[in-house]
């Protein structure tokens, strides 16, 4: 469903992403791991259009999306979250969610005049969808709270829920559990599994912590210094000496 070939990106003299190729199959959970500064976030920025590539080709659902504008890529059904969580702080939790759907009625200039009825009905429906998700995730009681007032872990969950509200085909998560407690981490893991099973969403997940993906992902890519150094099942990766060295090398 998602395919990237020979992607490269330089920042000045630094090769942040160096000839990386990956494939994400529909209906799977795939992981992208690597030490800090390996180029993982940069790679996500490239496939989601937030950065332009220096070379390489990106295909999504058979369509060439290389260097397409980010909102257009999102509209094709590939939606991402951010390592540095990006919620809408001065909007309520519920607002954060109902602003997200891509088929919202009433976001065009003339809509509030010509589609008053359709707009109301659509909002009602979106609110009930959002409420269901909030109840599901145990965030319902905070629905009218400003998002900035949530604890960090809940902000991360909110960001994920907001992405889900866009009805994506594939979700790209950049370190969904960075800096959150073990409870949140477990909760996040079961939510991701649930989304995959119930909604058939495909996942491509960056994690710095290898353990998170070990029993979640079916297949892992490993990058270090911008280069793809290994790929395989979590078991294979766990025993790969190159990977172990890369992690030990930067951790020390």
């Amino acid at each position: 469903m998602l395919e990237a070939n020979g992607i490269e990106k330089n920042f000045g003299g630094l090769k942040a992403v160096d000839n990386v190729s990956i494939k994400v199959k529909e209906g799977t959970i795939m992981g992208l791991i690597g030490p800090n500064g390996a180029g993982k976030t940069t790679f996500f920025n490239l496939i989601t259009g937030f950065l332009s590539t220096d070379s390489g080709e990106i295909k999504f659902k058979g369509k060439d999306i290389t260097n397409l504008e980010p909102h257009l890529i999102s509209r094709l059904g590939m939606v991402r979250t951010f390592q540095q969580t990006r919620i809408f702080p001065e909007m309520t939790v519920l607002e954060n969610l109902i602003v997200a759907p891509q088929d919202n009625v009433g976001e065009g200039f003339f809509d509030p005049i010509f589609y008053r009825k359709a707009l109301k009905d659509d909002q009602k429906e979106k609110i009930s969808v959002a409420v269901a998700i909030l109840k599901d995730m145990g965030l319902y009681d905070q629905k009218d709270e400003y998002a900035k007032n949530l604890p960090y872990g809940e902000q991360k969950r909110l960001e994920l829920m907001r992405a889900v509200m866009t009805s994506p085909d594939i979700l790209l998560l950049d370190e969904p559990t960075a800096g959150v407690s073990q409870d949140y981490t477990d909760n996040m893991k079961s939510y991701i599994k649930k989304l995959k099973n119930e909604r058939g969403i495909t996942f491509f997940i960056i994690e710095h912590k290898m353990s998170f993906l070990m029993d979640l992902a079916e297949y892992l890519y490993v990058i270090d210094h911008g280069k793809l150094i290994a790929s395989g099942t979590p078991k294979e990766i766990q025993n790969n000496t190159k990977v172990i060295n890369a992690y030990l090398g930067t951790e020390g």
Partner: peptide, 9 residues
């Protein structure tokens, strides 16, 4: 957050 809004399409 403009970037977040873009990410939502």
């Amino acid at each position: 957050d403009e970037t977040a809004a873009q990410s939502l399409g």
